[in-house]
Amino acid sequence: MKKNKCSGKLLMLLTFVFLYLPIAVLIVFSFNDSKSRTVWSGFTLNWYKELFSDRMIIQSLEITLLVSVLASLIAVVVGTFAAIGFFNMKKKWRSPLLTINNIPAVNADIITGVSLSLLFVSAGAVMGFDLGFGTLLIAHISFNIPYVILSVMPKLYQLDPNLSEAAQDLGCTWFQTIYKVILPEIMPGIVNGLLIAFTMSVDDFVISYFTAGSSVQTLSMAIYAMTRRRISPKINAISTLLFAVVLVLLIVVNVRQAQQSKAEEKKQKALRGQRAVSI
């Protein structure tokens, strides 16, 4: 068993080396004093300076953030309400609707992208609009909502069915029941959904590529355009910055969660103690 544990640790270590090696290379070469991505020629912060003066990259970053924030917020509102709605339906209706909901999550990105672009191009031809920020936003909302629903639904199933009845008996209107009882209870699922949706939006390339047209560009699209030519280390610089931001955020979240679960454990222990006493 001991040997087993050691080989398990080794395997984990190797997996992480594999996962982080390219990222380390990416970060190291963002400080490289030449355009080469394989030869080290000295330390510099020039690429960071150039990054902030590159309008194309900054603009695409703005578009990415704007579309991700808007899409994940809208998706969370629509998705949470949709999940509550689905939850209150009969199974006969719920199952097929959830299957349809899963289509964008299960389908290959390229199919979602291609099918939406067909819709936007043909609708645009009839109604006279071009692919652009609007179509990009709709596409992002569409592929975000399924993830929100998938993370909110389990929380609804965990709810005590007597909870909302109790609230209504105690004088809550139906809206207050949702607002004051159900929403706070499923909040972890909602926050989770928001985070997943935001991540998905920031990371998405394929669907944006097919639905954004030529007038707007997300960061992923800008990077893709650059890989077709030659990537400037500016891109390494921006990914290093993003990595640092995410790392800090994750550490903060992790510390908070650890504290919360510790408090939860204490509470559970206290409860168990009480129960033992009462028995």
């Binding site: 990416l26 991540t199 990077i223 990537i231 990595f243």
Partner: peptide, 15 residues
């Protein structure tokens, strides 16, 4: 495990 997913996947591939 999730942290690398936050790096744009084009960049990860490019690396």
């Amino acid at each position: 495990l999730m942290l690398p997913m936050w790096i744009n996947f084009l960049l990860r591939t490019y690396a």
